[in-house]
Simulated scan of single mutants.
Amino acid sequence: MAAGCLFLLLLLLPLASTQTYHWGPCPSPQVQPNFKLEQYVGRWYEIAKLPAPYTKGKCIETDYGIRKDGTIQVRYARFHKDKMRRAEGTAIITDAREPAKLGVSYSYFTPYSPHWVLTTDYTSVSVVYSCEDYFRVFHVDYAWILGRSRFLPPDTVRYAQDVLIKEGVDLFRMTATDQTGCKED
């Protein structure tokens, strides 16, 4: 028993400083009804997020496109440590009955992580949620507010935050993403 508690403590320590973790399994928030992938594809800029180690930087954006094989190309870019860093991944619809439930992977060797679109109007704002469950003992929340432009009106950001709060997502660690001084492609 003591070894199990020590193991759990060792798992939690790295998460405590950068991520939003909670006891219990991942929640199951409501996703965008009648999600239309064809309207969602294109460029989205990160407005705010719950922190994750791989999302440090500024000028963060994600571009979604549909490949010929039906998978979704995900191109991620961020400016970090004086350099533009890019990654390309693949997204799939994990549940055909709920097409807003995407899975995203940036490597052939990693499983698809949940990437659920909770709400979007397709033209200005999107709220995305992800969660990693650790043995149903605790989970780590990830959330993003995305915009079709680098800056959203405060009322729109508040609306997006309210969507997350309504679904029980703790926004205490949510931070705004710096989108100033960014170069356009």
Score class of each variant (00 low, 15 high):
residue 135 F to K: 12
residue 135 F to L: 15
residue 136 R to W: 12
residue 136 R to T: 11
residue 136 R to Y: 11
residue 136 R to M: 10
residue 137 V to L: 15
residue 137 V to S: 09
residue 137 V to G: 04
residue 138 F to R: 13
residue 138 F to W: 12
residue 138 F to C: 12
residue 139 H to V: 10
residue 139 H to P: 01
residue 139 H to W: 09
residue 139 H to R: 12
residue 140 V to H: 13
residue 141 D to G: 04
residue 141 D to C: 05
residue 142 Y to E: 09
residue 142 Y to I: 05
residue 142 Y to N: 13
residue 142 Y to D: 11
residue 143 A to N: 03
residue 143 A to H: 03
residue 143 A to P: 12
residue 143 A to Y: 01
residue 143 A to Q: 03
residue 144 W to D: 07
residue 144 W to M: 06
residue 144 W to K: 05
residue 145 I to L: 02
residue 146 L to V: 05
residue 146 L to C: 06
residue 147 G to D: 04
residue 147 G to C: 06
residue 148 R to V: 05
residue 148 R to A: 10
residue 148 R to F: 00
residue 149 S to R: 12
residue 149 S to K: 12
residue 149 S to I: 06
residue 150 R to G: 02
residue 150 R to A: 06
residue 150 R to H: 02
residue 151 F to T: 13
residue 152 L to T: 08
residue 152 L to W: 08
residue 152 L to D: 09
residue 152 L to G: 06
residue 153 P to K: 09
residue 153 P to R: 05
residue 154 P to K: 04
residue 154 P to H: 05
residue 154 P to W: 03
residue 154 P to D: 14
residue 155 D to E: 15
residue 155 D to S: 15
residue 155 D to I: 10
residue 155 D to C: 04
residue 156 T to D: 13
residue 156 T to F: 08
residue 156 T to C: 10
residue 156 T to K: 14
residue 156 T to S: 14
residue 156 T to I: 15
residue 156 T to H: 07
residue 157 V to E: 15
residue 157 V to Q: 13
residue 157 V to S: 08
residue 158 R to I: 13
residue 158 R to G: 07
residue 158 R to Q: 15
residue 158 R to K: 14
residue 158 R to H: 13
residue 158 R to S: 14
residue 159 Y to H: 15
residue 159 Y to V: 10
residue 159 Y to R: 13
residue 161 Q to G: 07
residue 161 Q to F: 03
residue 162 D to F: 03
residue 162 D to H: 07
residue 163 V to R: 09
residue 163 V to P: 00
residue 163 V to T: 11
residue 164 L to V: 01
residue 164 L to I: 02
residue 164 L to E: 00
residue 164 L to R: 00
residue 165 I to A: 13
residue 165 I to H: 04
residue 165 I to P: 00
residue 165 I to V: 15
residue 166 K to N: 12
residue 166 K to L: 11
residue 166 K to I: 09
residue 167 E to M: 09
residue 167 E to T: 05
residue 167 E to Y: 04
residue 167 E to V: 06
residue 167 E to I: 08
residue 168 G to L: 02
residue 168 G to P: 00
residue 169 V to Y: 01
residue 169 V to Q: 01
residue 170 D to M: 02
residue 170 D to T: 01
residue 171 L to Y: 01
residue 172 F to C: 01
residue 172 F to M: 07
